[in-house]
Design a binder for these strands. Sequence first.
DNA 1: CAGGGTTTCACTCTCCGAGA
DNA 2: TCTCGGAGAGTGAAACCCTG
Length: 255
Amino acid sequence: MIKKGVTLRGIEVFEALAGRGSVAHAAAMTGLSQPAVSQQISNLEAAVGAKLIDHSCRPMRLTAAGETFLRHSSLALAHVRQAQSELTVMDLVSLTDLHLGVIDDFDNDLTPRLATILADSMAGCRFRMVTDSSKRLLQAVQDKALHIAIAATDGDAKEGLIEIPLARDPFIIVAPAEIEADGADLLGGRTGLPFLRYEADQLIAGQISNQLSRHNINLTSQFEIGSHLALMAMVARGIGWTITTSFGYCRAQRF
DNA sequence: CAGGGTTTCACTCTCCGAGA
DNA sequence: TCTCGGAGAGTGAAACCCTG
């Protein structure tokens, strides 16, 4: 029997806090207030009888017990989310009309395969598929112009939207192959190679900017690029280095 | 010392079980 | 079936703590 006080809600809050290292960010992510997050963590720690988070440092870090608990609780949450997703798909099977948005990053590879799968599994449904930026897709779902969208998010709760996580896409540094420098050299500006950033209007630009400012890293940039593939092509030609995601990097293999 | 972030406290609301 | 009381989860306000 699971101990009294160990709740899915508590575990979800714990996972958010473990990922962000801040009660404020975990609150934004879960849609709760800061006191509620703090209370959930206290209850969880009391229930398991161990300190899971080191509250004395900023950002907060997991204790050894917290690391162990997170490893198992993440699996449990993943199973619950998977179950929710499968039930959602079962709901969709009876639909006759579906307006679906897909992030433009997936235009070439994922979208055609998704269309094939949907056509097979929802034979009686008419589809309208659009590709756009994550920001626009999320707005379209909020405006009820789309039923569902596959998009990137910053993890914060959005009014009126239900988010079902599909994948995590960590940030990575991408530099020209001929450059012999590590991440610290690039971030510290010791290579002389310019930083190429995404256009400020894009969701990923804001996420990268937040991460950098969280670590007190201030990078000036001569270039702001709207197209991901153009950005990767510029890196491949040695014009500069950039920060992108592992999915983004994989899509640029041809460079 | 100021500002941002966290915790504590007091209170409200909702849900659920027990008893009439 | 209805009422009542307890437990749990939420909030806002205020105090406290940490960092630059």
